[in-house]
Design a protein around this nucleic acid. Structure first.
Length: 507
RNA sequence: GGCUCGGUAGCUCAGCGGUAGAGCGGGGGACUCAUAAGCCCUAGGUCGCAGGUUCGAAUCCUGCCCGAGUCACCA
């Protein structure tokens, strides 16, 4: 059974401001999937930035920059976010790159040829101040409904390009019915299905009153959302039928925030239908991080700075927290005290202390050398742990996966209490002592593999302390076989704890 | 307003037709290898409210109350 190549994407992030914790959240989840799948076969993890559109242009002008110079200046900060959280993407695409814009135009031409893109007239009430078309029904006393504007609107009629979205409505409905799990979680699927049942209008995909976008032949620029969606194709060299495209299309998992589900689960598959391409296996709309139950927003002044956070707690602690605290599809409330409790509890007391006490006893009783393996009840009991955890990761059930791993952590701690190596040593029961110590080392090796996608730095730390070279790699089904840890090797326990205790003043 | 999702032990949540569960916090205990960590024991909550279906309902149906989301941009 050959394992197909794995392709995972995040949305390309709209670069109108600085990155925040939500961007880190999505990126970390994608990174976990990518790291896990790299143990199984060829994997491609794509992310990037969405740099066109009115808001970016406006922000740039206000800062006294030309839009390109402005986005160029912001990019390092975005890339720094990935570095800070150990997110290892395979490609980072910017919609202002030539490789993207040329392909966008090629797609546009192709859709014109198939008749899915046509020239039409866009009419509506337009507010020049907001540069927005408003529906008649939204107007308040015939004026702009934006409470901060309220200016008079004018009837405008523009010639524009349209995408024949309505034509694909029935096919989308049929597709949804045939693939009930293609949009997840179920909540998102249901919402999008009801949107579809409400009917679809064709989509205006060009903007004549905007300069900052991909220029279309004959004038105007492409609607920023279509431009953005196409990144998933252009990054793979779709237009030239590149090697990447042939290897990795279609995406296995596309992660999105729930607010952009409509674009990714209605417009996007319709575009792919029009292009005659396969659709993604799964579009997963994850939940929002709220702060003490409230939505984060600049106006509330409760935005969590991801850089400050990682500096205080460390990348692995935040990565673990974000994926362990709530189910991936649900919203959850962020709080620094919660982070601290996870850090000191799960990570410090359970995992970090387990590694430290195990290797300390090995050093004290066996000069740090890994003893010979013996038949192990523990190994037998957890024989399916790799398979179970892997299945959960593949389903994006990160929380359940980590819970499964922590059951193992608890079992190892319990094994120490039950076997009491210190008593075995006093009693001179060498066989029993060797057996426990081996189990502990082998357990730590397993934990290094299992935690690697989630906490790469910590996993490497455990690996190195066991005296192993490199880093945890290879499929769990091959590596998580009890007894693979070679005996006789010299361990290298670290002086420093994996997760030093943080007192309340830190958080 | 339409639609969606929630309301279960102090907190975060699981359970989703068969006499209430986990983790954390709190309380108690025995130990000492370890980051005053770990391990063991301990939670008596009318499962939002009111009806209904059923031999039997957190679990299905109806109504109501409360909270959140979504229907325009936003991970």
């Amino acid at each position: 059974m050959s394992k197909r190549a794995y392709f995972v994407t995040t949305p390309i992030y709209y670069i109108s401001g600085n990155p925040h914790i939500g961007h880190a959240y999505t990126s970390i989840a994608a990174d976990v999937l990518a790291r896990y799948h790299r143990t199984l076969g060829p994997t491609f993890f794509l992310t990037g930035t969405d740099e066109h559109g009115q808001k970016v242009e406006q922000a740039a002008r206000e800062a006294g920059f030309d839009p390109q110079a402005w986005t160029d200046a912001l990019i390092p900060k975005w890339k720094a976010l990935y570095a800070a959280y150990d997110v290892g993407y395979d490609d980072f695409i910017r919609t202002t790159e030539t490789r993207h814009t040329t392909q966008v135009v090629a797609v546009f031409e192709r859709l014109k040829e198939t008749g899915d893109v046509y020239l039409g007239t866009y009419e509506g009430w337009y507010c020049t101040n907001d540069e927005t078309f408003w529906l008649e029904s939204k107007l308040i006393d015939g004026r702009c409904p934006n409470p901060e504007c309220g200016r008079a609107v004018q009837w405008l009629s523009e010639e524009n390009w349209f995408f024949a979205l309505s034509k694909y409505r029935d096919r989308l409905v049929a597709y949804y019915r045939a693939h009930p799990e293609w949009v997840r979680p179920e909540r998102a699927y249901n919402e999008m299905m009801s949107t579809l049942e409400g009917g679809l209008d064709d989509l205006c995909i060009s903007r004549v009153n905007l300069d900052w976008g991909v220029p279309l032949p004959g004038g105007g620029v492409m609607y920023v959302w279509l431009d953005a969606l196409l990144n998933y194709l252009t990054a793979l060299d779709y237009a030239s039928d590149g090697e990447r495209f042939r290897t990795f299309w279609p995406p296995n998992v596309q992660l999105i925030g729930k607010e952009i589900a409509r674009f990714h689960t209605i417009i996007w598959p319709a575009v792919l239908f029009a292009l005659g391409l396969e659709t993604p296996n799964v579009v997963f709309a994850h939940g929002w991080i709220t702060l003490e139950g409230e939505k984060m927003s600049k106006s509330r002044g409760n935005v969590v700075d991801p850089f400050e956070l990682v500096e205080r707690f460390g990348s692995d602690t935040i990565r673990y927290f974000l994926l362990r605290e709530a189910h991936f599809g649900s919203d959850f409330s962020f709080g620094e005290e919660k982070v601290r409790l996870r850090r000191n509890g799960d990570l410090g007391n359970d995992l970090g202390n387990l590694v430290k006490r195990s290797l300390a006893m090995l050093a004290r009783y066996r000069n740090g050398r890994i003893p010979a393996a013996a038949p192990s009840a523990l190994g037998a009991r957890f024989a399916d742990l790799g398979a179970r955890t892997g299945a959960l990761v593949e389903r994006l059930a990160f929380r359940d996966a980590l819970e499964a791993v922590w059951e193992f952590v608890t079992a190892l701690n319990r094994a120490i209490e039950e076997q009491k190596p210190w008593e075995l040593h006093k009693r001179g029961d060498d066989a029993a002592l060797d057996a426990v110590l081996y189990d502990l080392c082998e357990g730590i090796r397993w934990l290094a593999h299992l935690t690697f996608p989630f906490m790469p730095a910590t996993a490497r730390g455990m690996w190195t302390q066991l005296g192993l070279a490199g880093e945890p790699a290879g499929a769990w089904s091959d590596e998580l076989v009890w007894g693979r840890l070679a005996s006789g090797a010299q361990t290298a326990p670290a002086e420093a704890a994996l997760f030093p205790r943080l007192d309340a003043s830190v958080a």
